[in-house]
Design a protein around this nucleic acid. Structure first.
Lengths: 357, 357
DNA sequence: TGACATAATTGGAACGTTCCAAATATTTAT
DNA sequence: ATAAATATTTGGAACGTTCCAATTATGTCA
C-alpha cells in the first residue's frame, strides 16, 4: 500500500550528498560539517526516514544488535514481573530493547525461545532458568561470545555470571527471629528438594536452628510444591506430627499463604496460634491478613543489577563470569503474632569471581 | 574463542552444494532432493549453524521479521503482566517473538520504545497506551503498513484495531446488583474524568442507575485518583453529603479498598453498613476482608485475543481496523453484605487481575 | 606562492540471506 | 534414441547499512 522504504540513499539523493555522509551523520560522527549535518537531519525528518538496524547490524558483523534477551519462568508471578521491569529500566536507558519471553517452567519452551533469540542476534541474555535446566544449555551461547547472566536460580557448573539472593542468610534470620520469639520447634515447609534454591534455603534453616541452640529434626522439614496448594499440604503433615511445631519458615510466600489457609481450615489462627514466615515479599504479602512476615528480596533490584552486569560484559566484549549474591532482609509484619516491628537487617553483598569448571 | 560466524556459505562448501540449495533447505522447500536435504541438515548441525534472521529479513524487503512489539504502561501491575503472558502464548506458538517494553505511563518513554521497535523492524504492535497518548502517535506505523492493536485503553480517533473490556456493561451490572439489594442512593467513586475508561464506566453507571429506575444525581459522582488514597478521599466526600449514599461502585479495586479503609476510619463496616463494589478483580480482591465484590476482566484473554487479531492482520498483509470489546462478569463476594447464606463462590480459581487507571 | 597538514566527502566492497532466471540432471513419452 | 517434460541445482544480483581507502576542499605556514 505504501511506498518502498526510505533508505539512506534516498536521503543522500535528496540532500545532495553521498550515502556515506548520511551514514556518518547517523552515527553522530564528528567528521561531518555542521551545516551538512543539519541539512541531512532535516531531510531525514522530512522524508520520515527510519533507521534499519537489521541492515546495520549485518554489516557490523553481529557486533551490536542492542537487543538483550530476557527469559523468565513465570511472568504471572509478580516476582518475575518486577524483575523484568528492573531489567527493562536499565536496559532501556542504555538504548537497548529487551526481548522478553516466558517459559512457564518448560524446558522445551526455554530452548525454543533462546534459539529464536539467538537467530535474532541478541547481544546478551538474562535468564531465570526453568527447573532442571542443564548447565550445558547455555554453552553454545557463551562459546559464541554472547554474555549470559543467570538470575534468581543459579546453575551450578555453568560458566556464566549469576546473581542470586542470599537465600541462606535470609532463612537464617527468619529462624532466628522465630527463636527470639520463644519458639522451640520450628518447621521448614515447602519447596522441591532437588533444586539449588531449596538447598540454600534449607541450609540457612539448619544453621539458623543450630545457631539458636535448638535441635535439628529431620521430621520438621516437609517438602512440597512451592505453591499455595503445597503449603496447605505441608502444614497438614506438620500438624499431624506427634510433637507438632509452633512455627514455620516457608520456602516462599506462596507456600506461606497456603500454610495460613491450612491453619484456618483447622481452626488455628495464623499469627496468634502458629507463627508463619515467608520468603520473597511479594506484593500481596503486606496486604494479606495477617500481613506476612517474610524475607524481602527486591526482585526489581536483582533485575537492575543483572542488567548492569550484562551490559558491562557486552561493552567489555569479554564475558568474565562473576557471581554475586544480593542482600536480603527480614520484614516483620503480623504473621508471627508480634505487633512490634523491628526490621532485622541481614545479609551482605558478596562478590566473588567464579572459578573452576 | 569468538570464531567467525558460520554462514550458509560455509555449510554449502562443507556439504558440497551451492548456497542456494542450502537456502532452499532452510526454507523447507520441496524442490530439494531428500538426500541433499538430510546431508545439508547434518552439516548444519555439525558446524553449529545459527540462522541469521537479520540478513534474511533484509533481503525479504522487511516482509516479516517475526517480531511483535508489546508495550504496556505498567508491568508491575499484574493485570498487565497477565496480559503480556497471554500475548506471549499465542505469539510464541506462531513462531514469533515479542519485544516487551514498559512505559510506566510516560509518554516520552512510549515514543522512544516504539521508535526503537520500529528500527528493529517489528511486524506488528500491541500497545496499552500511556495516559494522554495522542491518537496520531501511531499514524506513522499504520502508514508504514505495520498493524497496531490497542488494548485495555482505547484511543478515540486512531484508526487502529482495539480490544477493550466492556466497561460499560460491567459497571451497569454492578449497579443493578446493588439496586437489587435494595440500595437507592448509589455513588460512583474514583477515577480521573479525563480518560476514556472513566467515560465508559461512568456511562455504565448512569445507565445502570436509570435502568434500575433510580434518579441520577450529579453529586453522587465523585472523582479522585484511581488509587487507594483516592478511594479514602472520595468516600470522605460521599459521607459528608447531606443525604449520604448507602452503597458505591468504584472506579477500580484500588479505589474500593481505599473506600473500605475510609469507612472503617469512620466506624462503618464495609459490607454491613455500606456496600462496596470494585472493578478489575485484582488478586487481592478475593483475599481481602471482606472479600470484594467486583467486576472481573480477563487480562490474559485480552492478551491472547489481541495477539490473534494482530497476527491475523500481519498475515493478511493489510490492516483492517476492528474494534472488539470483551465480556466481563460480576463476581459476588462479601463486600455488599450478602455474604451469609450462599457462599457465592465462582468455582474457578480466579487468576490475578488488576487494571491500573 | 608552493607545500603540506587538516577537514569533509565519497565511491565501492563487504555483511548473510533470498530471489530470479537459467543451467543441468533425470524421467517419461514417443 | 530423441524430444519433451520434470526434478534439482546453481550463480549472480539484490536488500540497507558500515567500513575502508581514496579523493577533494579548506586552511596554515614559511
Amino acid at each position: 500500500m505504501t511506498k518502498a522504504r526510505v533508505t539512506v540513499i534516498d536521503i543522500a539523493k535528496a540532500a545532495g550528498v553521498s550515502k556515506s555522509t548520511v551514514s556518518l551523520v547517523l552515527q553522530g560522527s564528528s567528521l561531518v560539517n555542521e551545516g551538512t549535518r543539519s541539512k541531512v537531519n532535516a531531510v531525514m525528518r522530512e522524508l520520515g526516514y527510519v533507521y534499519n538496524r537489521g541492515a546495520a547490524n549485518l554489516r557490523q558483523a553481529g557486533a551490536k544488535s542492542r537487543i538483550v534477551g530476557v527469559v523468565v519462568n513465570d511472568l504471572t508471578n509478580s516476582f518475575f514481573a518486577e524483575l523484568a521491569v528492573g531489567v527493562d529500566m536499565v536496559v532501556q536507558s542504555a538504548g537497548f530493547v529487551q526481548f522478553l519471553s516466558n517459559t512457564g517452567e518448560s524446558i522445551d519452551r526455554q530452548r525454543e525461545v533462546v534459539a529464536s533469540m539467538r537467530e535474532h542476534g541478541i547481544s546478551g541474555l538474562i535468564v531465570s532458568p526453568a527447573r532442571a535446566t542443564d548447565a550445558a544449555d547455555f554453552k553454545p551461547l557463551v562459546a559464541a561470545g554472547i554474555p549470559v547472566v543467570v538470575v534468581v536460580r543459579n546453575l551450578p557448573g555453568a560458566k556464566v555470571s549469576s546473581i542470586v539472593s542470599d537465600n541462606q542468610a535470609g532463612m537464617m534470620s527468619a529462624v532466628k527471629h522465630l527463636a527470639g520469639l520463644g519458639h522451640k520447634r520450628i518447621a521448614f515447609l515447602g519447596g522441591f528438594p532437588d533444586t539449588a534454591v531449596f538447598d540454600d534455603r534449607h541450609a540457612g534453616y539448619r544453621s539458623g536452628v543450630e545457631v539458636a541452640g535448638l535441635d535439628y529434626h529431620e521430621e520438621l522439614v516437609i517438602s512440597s510444591a512451592p505453591s499455595r496448594a503445597g503449603g496447605v499440604e505441608a502444614i497438614g503433615k506438620a500438624i499431624a506430627l506427634g510433637r507438632r511445631p509452633t512455627a514455620a519458615v516457608c520456602f516462599n510466600d506462596a507456600v506461606a499463604f497456603g500454610v495460613c489457609d491450612g491453619l484456618r481450615a483447622r481452626r488455628l489462627e495464623p499469627g496468634a496460634d502458629f507463627a508463619v514466615v515467608g520468603f520473597d515479599d511479594v506484593i500481596e504479602a503486606q496486604a494479606a491478613v495477617p500481613a506476612l512476615t517474610t524475607v524481602s528480596v527486591d526482585p526489581q533490584g536483582i533485575g537492575r543489577r543483572g542488567a548492569q552486569m550484562l551490559l558491562k560484559q557486552i561493552n567489555a566484549g569479554k564475558a568474565e563470569a562473576e557471581a554475586v549474591t544480593t542482600a536480603v532482609r527480614l520484614v516483620v509484619r503480623e504473621s508471627c503474632g508480634t505487633g512490634k516491628a523491628v526490621p532485622a537487617r541481614t545479609g551482605k553483598s558478596v562478590k566473588s569471581k567464579q572459578d573452576a569448571e
